[in-house]
Design a protein around this nucleic acid. Structure first.
Lengths: 330, 330
DNA sequence: TATTTTTCCGCAAACATTTGCGGAAATGTT
DNA sequence: AACATTTCCGCAAATGTTTGCGGAAAAATA
């Protein structure tokens, strides 16, 4: 334990060559059972563990994936990371997790860090105003597989795994129709994000086709915005009978505003969100939501990454279907 | 870009030796300014980046810290990790984050993984029924600095950084006294966890000294427990005028139960929690809490780890003081 | 016994980098 | 011109592991 065990150390103890030790530990057929046994015993005794630095150098692989997210303190990414970590571990890989703080500069720094550490592959969810895409493209040319998830590039030609946002929004709109809501307040996030557009357009498209439905749309930069917009909508003469929330962040604001009003959910006003379910479950009654499972997405992303490890394949876009989870808010 | 640049590649282009290239790039005084310039230019052109595998092997350092937590999808750890990551990055380190899922086996696997990757140090928050402490001790003997945080070993002799739990609980109790509450429901978590004991004992000690105060204590294994205990307490003839929640998990359950009752916060019943603030901020009125800042703790933990990098120092126990954040629930 | 085959193992190069040491050439000093 | 000094650079070893190749000894065949 004083000196960390190496092949050399073991070979000197046993009067064998280093290569014999190496082969014995790997069950190479060239080595007799007898010496294999002796070598393994001593190796166990000395608590030998291959020096990963040396192995990496030799094999030019690290068995580590880089994972870059805007924030990991976010319900969606949390469960995504859990899933990725789980399957990475099962396949002998580990994760180097970096967060960009939604800052494009930090994001590209993180990419460079992944390159520096020579990770075997990169999983990344882009920052809002990312300019890292061409860096990614160059890295991919250089042989680093990259799988984008959730927030993916607009341009094609990349491996992407994301929520079927259009489908999710469509499902939300249809759900609202089913419940025969007439006056809807629909709250969306940052209009610069492609996810916002992808959710808003199909959503509105469906509702606009219907007659007798009035829809008010607002963009909310944050929770406070959502709270303020909701509060002012509730003060108007004609109060909405439904609020749709594009994200958890917005839902939180909406619920604060509703708490301060006299309105009962779902009798006076109904609520539907897009979420992974944690936040909706905090309220009473629990809020109905269209599920966007970070966990499921993580599984898919890792699967795709492992395919990349097997060998080159053409870029692929994968969509994760979503489903309605009924609480008691409709 | 076809071939990743190496010192050898550059040396061949310039008809210089590998060692000269290496020294030139490091501004070694032995190398003339002239050749330094030429080398650096070509290196930049070829986008040379030192092979970290080789550097690690040579220097026997990885510039990576291992970070092991029961869960990272937990508000406290989230902010802890953010802080650690921030300061690690500033000092040229990266993080390998592993979660044990509060499973002792997984935890020891993770420790072994850190050893395997030969991280330069380990930051760890122990699982509930951890038996990894002696493994940690052995690793530390073997030269891997280990800093425990939040959930630390009972036995001494380790570097620990944690919330001043006793102080936190004391502060909570005094706060409750200040508001002249008479009938208190105090909800705690898993009684097997040392944190539960550390919070409960000082809390009760203070309240028991006061006359005319009635305190009911319950252990909650989870959110549902907290909800159920609260609901049944509210059904009794004599309803509590205050509920104390040891953790976010418990607070969530309590709030669900309160939502289902007619009681108003803070008029009919008051609430105080121990939290990092995210969950308390979700409610309206916002819940008052004794702050346990994961972020601050992360700063301290990283500081301690970096001291370890400087050189051997005696083990140290560090406590992070806490403070009351007033919402409107008291 | 002579030859072939099999069994078992070692040599040495390679991965990319760092660094002590030594040495040729250029410059400076008597 | 002979010597000492400085400037600039290369050799080679070392980090620990993997692997192609070759070779001695043992076993099998003729």
């Amino acid at each position: 334990m004083a000196q960390p065990a190496t092949l050399k150390l073991i070979s000197e103890q046993l009067n064998l060559s280093i290569s014999t030790i190496s082969r014995a530990l790997k069950n190479h057929p060239d080595i007799s059972e007898n010496t294999k046994r002796k070598v393994k015993e001593l190796a166990a005794l000395m608590e030998y563990e291959p020096n990963s630095y040396a192995v990496n150098l030799r094999t030019n692989k690290s068995k580590v994936f880089g994972l870059i997210v805007p924030f990991f303190s976010n319900m969606f990414n949390d469960s995504f990371i859990s899933a990725v970590e789980e399957d990475a571990r099962k396949n002998g890989y580990s994760l180097m997790i970096l967060q960009s703080g939604d800052d494009p500069l930090q994001e590209s720094e993180n990419l460079k860090l992944c390159k520096h550490y020579r990770v075997d592959g990169i999983l990344i969810s882009l920052a809002a105003k990312s300019y890292s895409i061409e860096l990614c493209a160059r890295y991919r040319e250089a042989g680093i597989p990259i799988v984008f998830f959730d927030r993916v590039p607009e341009t094609g030609g990349f491996d992407t795994v994301c929520i079927a946002d259009e489908e999710t929004a469509t499902m939300a709109a249809h759900t609202i129709l089913t419940y025969k809501k007439k006056k809807i307040l629909a709250l969306f996030g940052n209009p610069d994000l492609s996810i916002t557009k992808k959710r808003k357009d199909p959503f509105l498209k469906i509702l606009e086709k219907e007659k007798g439905i009035e829809t008010e749309t607002q963009y909310c930069a944050n929770t406070q915005d959502a709270k303020d917009f909701t509060s002012s909508a509730l003060r108007k003469s004609s109060v909405p009978d439904h609020i749709f929330c594009m994200s958890d962040e917005i839902l939180i604001g909406v619920m604060k505003a509703l708490k301060n009003s006299k309105l009962k959910i779902p009798e006076d006003i109904s609520v539907l969100a897009i979420s992974n379910g944690f936040i909706p479950g905090l309220y009473s009654p629990e809020i109905s939501y269209i599920e966007t499972s970070g966990y499921e997405l993580g599984k898919l992303a890792m699967k795709r990454m492992l395919e990349n490890m097997e060998g080159k394949t053409a870029a692929k876009s994968i969509m994760l279907p979503s489903r309605l989870v009924e609480g008691n808010s409709l």
